[in-house]
Write a protein that binds this DNA or RNA. Structure first.
Length: 443
DNA sequence: TCTGGGGTCCTAGGACCC
DNA sequence: TCTGGGGTCCTAGGACCC
């Protein structure tokens, strides 16, 4: 999509998102979960990231740690699931494919949301929106809401209205709303419900007497830019119907590759931390190989719990790599060595990992020379290559073909998960992405 | 006992250059 | 001896989002 198409007048912007996406995905394959309170947990079964309406009605808030809602399983029949990103990713692709058929353009915004361009009269657009809901229900089996307006920020708001008002049947076309009703809603909805206004900005705005969407809409954009930034100024303009948030470029070349995770058990010893760094450095190297990219900067991090009373420690270091590389041996040894010098054995580290940045599509000359830049294995035999370089090359090729679990250096090469690896106690099957785990149907 | 992870965008400030 | 200022690039940190 070009920048022009997003700013040209005469067409509407729809924001379509799946209600309680992760929970809805789980329900498609386990109908027994319908009409029951269900939550999906974050990585490591840490806290609640998705809730069914019934779970919301129990007062469960998003972000609440699992241990605080555990008892509700017994007392209120709460169902708990670990997050299953393979399943959600696949379901997302199906939803987005269907949505794409309806828009004059489509911009996938997140795993469960997409902006769409819709044309026609307001009534026709409302009909399209209802058609979208029906099509997604039929093809994928999850419920969506559709908000339609003239800008992205207003489409987000309309979507919010559609969700909060059951009588709208999941569709809100702002232009078809009764103006007095709309004005009332805008005067009641807090400014922090606006897309792009978080809690910090919200409390600063409150100090200026701006608390509702209506009040932010009426604010002076120039003054807002001065007190805040161009970001919030754009929000004000968008609330007034001026399109100024352009398309987010579809980028396969994201700026960084990150593998940081919480551990199921605290890591205390150098030995275990070496295993962590080695494991994630190799994961990151393998990701680069699959994307055909190279890194020039590596960051290693670890951290103790912010909630624990013990000694706090957040070791972190940036390592400028000697060349643009994705060599797993080099990355692993640098990551292990850097963290070795930073961590204090005896502390309870609860998370850690590796971030690669400064990414490019081209290896440095030296990398090419070593044969590490090749993806198809047509590396010329070079007398100067050491055993280590040959191993690097071989590891890259195997992970490219068979995935990062197929081979590894040191303890990572052992198929068994390390004992600090992430908890996923309540995981559902990979119903759509693994032949072994397809759902069985009996008639 | 037990509290996520992976991103984006913007701004301010420092280093460096001419 | 006179000791400016604008532009660019990079990075760290803040804020936000899902």
């Amino acid at each position: 999509m070009s920048a022009e198409s997003a700013t040209r007048g005469g067409e509407y912007i729809a924001l379509v998102d799946v209600n309680n996406f992760y929970v809805s995905c789980e329900r498609v394959f386990d109908p027994a979960l319908r009409h029951r309170p269900v939550v999906v947990l974050s990585n490591n079964d840490g806290c609640v990231v998705a809730r069914s309406q019934e779970a919301k009605d129990l007062g469960i808030t998003t972000g609440v740690p699992y241990f605080k809602v555990r008892d509700l399983q017994q007392s209120h029949g709460l169902v708990v699931r670990s997050s299953n990103y393979e399943l959600y990713g696949d379901m997302s692709a199906r939803v987005m494919e269907v949505l794409g058929r309806f828009g004059t353009w489509q911009e996938v915004y997140s795993i469960d949301e997409s902006f769409l361009g819709l044309t026609g009269s307001p009534v026709q657009v409302q009909r399209s929106a209802a058609g979208i809901r029906a099509a997604i229900h039929q093809a994928v089996g999850v419920p969506v809401c559709v908000g339609v307006s003239s800008t992205k920020t207003l489409a987000k708001f309309a979507n919010h209205v559609a969700k909060k008002n059951p009588n709208l049947a999941g569709v809100c076309v702002e232009e078809l709303m009764e103006p007095s009703v709309l004005a009332r809603i805008k005067s009641l909805v807090p400014v922090t419900d606006v897309w792009g206004v978080g809690s910090k900005t919200g409390s600063k705005l409150a100090g200026m007497g701006i608390q509702s969407i209506a009040e932010l809409t009426a604010a002076d954009p120039q003054a807002i830019r001065k007190r805040f930034s161009v970001v919030l100024q754009r929000t004000v303009l968008e609330l007034n119907g001026t399109r100024c948030i352009g398309p987010v470029e579809e980028r396969s070349d994201k700026g960084q590759v990150m593998f940081t995770r919480s551990f199921s058990h605290p890591v205390r010893s150098r030995e275990q931390m070496r295993e962590v760094m080695s494991y994630y450095a190799q994961k990151a190297a393998s990701r680069l190989a699959s994307e055909g990219r190279y890194a020039s900067l590596m960051t290693v991090t670890a951290g103790t719990s912010r909630f624990a009373s013990g000694q706090q420690s957040f070791p972190s270091a940036q390592i400028r790599l000697p060349r643009a590389t994705r060599d797993p041996i080099l990355l692993t040894s640098l990551a292990v060595k850097a963290m070795d010098g930073l961590m204090e054995p005896g502390n309870d580290y609860v998370r850690g990992g590796v971030i690669l940045s400064g990414l490019s599509d081209e290896p440095d000359a030296e990398e090419l020379e070593l044969g590490l830049g090749h993806t198809e294995g047509e590396r010329p035999a070079s007398a100067g290559n050491t055993g280590g370089e040959r191993i690097s090359h071989m590891v890259q090729q195997v992970t490219q073909r068979f995935g990062s679990r197929a081979i590894g250096l040191g303890r990572t090469g052992i198929a068994q998960e390390p004992d600090w690896s992430m908890k996923r106690e309540f995981i559902s099957q990979r119903y759509t992405t693994d032949w072994e785990e397809l759902p069985a149907v009996r008639a």
